[in-house]
Design a protein around this nucleic acid. Structure first.
Length: 286
DNA sequence: CATTGCCCCGATAGCTTG
DNA sequence: CAAGCTATCGGGGCAATG
């Protein structure tokens, strides 16, 4: 059991939220101590239609949206509106400090209206940024496609589509939930071949290899690794879908039925040919 | 055929522990 | 402080849907 997670579970238990039992309409609010946020965040009015709407630069020329922009200028902590030269939009979060709150603390404003996507957002999908820029009104982050913007807007919401049956924690992404569940099941698909350690995430293994064994994976930036098929029941990993399927047939017939119903087998990328993972052998009890 | 949702990924931040 | 763990989120492939 991960050390850090043991500590964090206390906090989770304290909240004891079961997302699956809460209707979407009721999931929106999570109490966050006032001290966490700067004062201007609390000034966002509850009923503002502009709060979570997102629009294109082209639409900003629209009169109605110009009005919205003025509202936003007064309400949102944009650098232009607030005259904070230090303020950086969230799009710089990777390299600079996040503008509103500590990372991993989700932002909520209370009764949050549904995100408003511009009417022509769909038509703007996949249009390069030079032609049109979609921006999030919450954090000013810009996206090149409406699809990306839509998904991004969800990260400002407390509504989670996927909840953990073990602790109730909610996630926006099914894969994130699947990865999280491993912290409960103990499944660690990524094994180090140079020692006995195993990890739930590839990046953890690669970090371990780099720091402990001085082994650097030879991958190009953002290069995809080969898929690694993981049995979430016992932690067995296979390099092929058939390999996992055979395993499921042999040992987890019930699981296979469920998987087939979902039309997909769980697949993860392995480290490729240079991967230290050992997909042939399960490392957790089976 | 365009759009959308699902799924999976990697990069990275922030945390705890020793 | 290093190592390890977990969560967050943007990117992108692909199949389903209207």
């Amino acid at each position: 059991m991960p050390r850090a997670f043991l500590v964090k579970k206390v906090n989770i238990a304290a909240e004891k939220r079961s997302w699956s039992e809460i209707p979407d309409s009721a999931r929106g609010d999570v109490y966050i101590p006032e001290s966490v946020f700067p004062p201007y965040l609390h000034e966002v009015s509850e009923g503002s239609i502009a709060e979570f709407s997102c629009f294109t630069t082209a639409q900003k020329n629209n009169t109605f949206l110009q009005v919205q922009s003025h509202v936003l200028s007064a309400q949102l902590p944009s650098s232009a509106a607030q005259g904070h030269p230090d303020h950086k939009p969230e799009c710089h979060m990777r390299t600079q400090r996040r503008p509103y709150s500590h990372s991993k603390i989700k932002i909520t404003t209370g009764n949050m209206p549904s995100p408003v996507i511009p009417d022509n957002a769909n038509k703007l999908a996949d249009i390069p940024p030079a032609a049109s820029v979609l921006s999030c009104q919450v954090c000013q982050k810009t996206f090149t496609t409406a699809r990306m913007l839509k998904r991004h807007v969800k990260c400002h919401s407390e509504t989670k589509k996927y909840s953990c049956e073990h602790c109730g924690k909610g996630f926006n992404d099914a894969f994130d939930l699947k990865r999280h569940v491993r912290t409960h099941t103990g499944v660690r698909p990524y094994k180090c071949t140079l020692c006995v350690k195993a990890f739930t995430q590839r990046c953890s293994l690669e970090s371990h290899l780099r720091k402990i064994h001085a082994v650097t994976q030879q991958y190009a930036y953002k290069e995809r690794r080969d898929k690694l098929y993981v049995c979430e029941e016992c932690g067995l990993t296979a390099q092929t879908r058939n390999g996992l399927q055979n395993h499921l047939l042999a040992g987890h017939a019930q699981r296979l039925i469920m998987t087939k119903n979902n039309h997909k087998l769980t697949g993860y990328t392995s480290g490729g040919n240079t991967s230290p993972c050992s997909p042939e052998t399960p490392h957790i009890k089976c």
